[in-house]
């Protein structure tokens, strides 16, 4: 779910669109844009306190031909197509018939792209890491 939620909307929707043989679905909850309140902790580790809200889109759908399987999505932002793609992927991942292909064609590529994105950011940050030389202490 985390990989789907953090993925860029256009990547998730494109990978899901490219996936063949998707099951028919019914809405349990149509996409709805709302907010989730974020929290922090005093000093990073102490009592929780309220920050601000973040926009989130949620929806839930059911697979018509697989009784009892419900796909949920709560994804950051206001992209309805992304929430829908995430809910469908979530449902398909719970279904033996589809889980393998969704994992291989959607989740794994997104996971790899995210890892590459993070590594690149860490490499750029790494280039700004300070190497100290011994210096004479300034007076005062």
């Amino acid at each position: 779910m985390g990989v789907l939620a953090r993925a860029p909307a256009d990547r998730l929707t494109a990978l899901m669109a490219a996936l063949g043989g998707k099951p028919a679905t019914d809405w349990l909850r149509r996409p709805e844009i709302g907010a989730v309140m974020t929290r922090g902790r005093a000093g990073g580790t102490g009592d929780a306190f309220t920050l601000g809200e973040m926009t989130v889109t949620r929806c839930a759908l059911r697979l018509k031909d697989h009784v009892g399987i419900v796909g949920h999505a709560y994804v950051q932002g206001r992209d309805v197509a992304k929430a829908e793609a995430a809910a469908l992927a979530d449902a398909m991942l719970q279904c033996e018939a589809y889980a393998g292909s969704v994992r291989a064609a959607v989740v794994e590529p997104l996971r790899a792209e995210e890892a590459a994105r993070r590594l690149r950011a860490r490499r750029k940050a790494g280039a700004t890491k300070v190497d100290f030389f011994t210096m004479v202490r300034a007076e005062g």
Binding site: I33, G34, R41, R118
Partner: peptide, 17 residues
């Protein structure tokens, strides 16, 4: 915006820096 609820407190110790 309707509020869906409140998130867990963020863990700044686990930040991707």
């Amino acid at each position: 915006l309707p509020r869906f609820g409140a998130a867990e407190p963020i863990d700044t110790g686990a930040m991707t820096i």
